[in-house]
Computed example of a mutant assay.
Amino acid sequence: MNAYRGNNHFPLLWKFYKNHRSTFFRLIKVLDLKSTTNEQSVINALNFVLENSHRRGELISATIELDFISEQWRKLVVVKLGEKTKFVRRYLEVCVFHHLAAELRSGDICVIGSEEYADCREQLLPWSECFD
């Protein structure tokens, strides 16, 4: 498969994702995720994936834009069938969760109410100790 060329490890992620798929969806359904920026594309893609989570077919109709994904992901996720564009459901799910994790790490997406559980800033050194 051409997707394996060019150091592309993304096709291998499905193997690890599939056993945890239902857990990811249960978790995402109970979390209140919000973008901390004006960029909504990952949130929109997540909602699209949630709306289609009941599907079991290999392909689903492409009705959203995936401007945020890399060319490596695009080769796996997007399929042209004549005039129609389809998404490979499995890889779309992995791609969206992969980007969601990156957005959560960077702070571009947050979980509303998460400050009630722990504040990572409490583990940081005070400024006074940083400059000694």
Rank of each mutant, 00 (worst) to 15 (best):
N2K: 07
Y4F: 14
R5S: 08
N8F: 12
H9C: 11
F10H: 13
F10A: 15
L12R: 11
K15C: 07
F16L: 09
R21P: 06
S22W: 08
K29H: 01
V30Q: 07
V30S: 12
D32G: 05
L33R: 01
S35D: 00
T36W: 02
Q40E: 08
S41C: 11
I43D: 00
A45R: 10
N47I: 02
F48V: 06
F48L: 04
V49W: 00
E51C: 04
S53E: 02
H54I: 00
R56P: 00
R56K: 06
R56I: 02
L59H: 15
L59W: 15
A62Y: 02
A62W: 09
T63L: 15
I64L: 13
F68N: 08
S70K: 05
R74V: 15
L81A: 12
G82E: 11
E83I: 15
K86V: 13
F87K: 05
R90G: 04
Y91P: 04
E93L: 07
C95P: 03
C95K: 01
H98N: 08
H99V: 13
E103W: 04
L104R: 02
L104K: 00
R105C: 15
S106A: 03
C110E: 01
V111W: 01
V111C: 05
V111N: 04
V111I: 13
I112L: 05
A118L: 08
S128M: 03
S128V: 03
E129M: 10
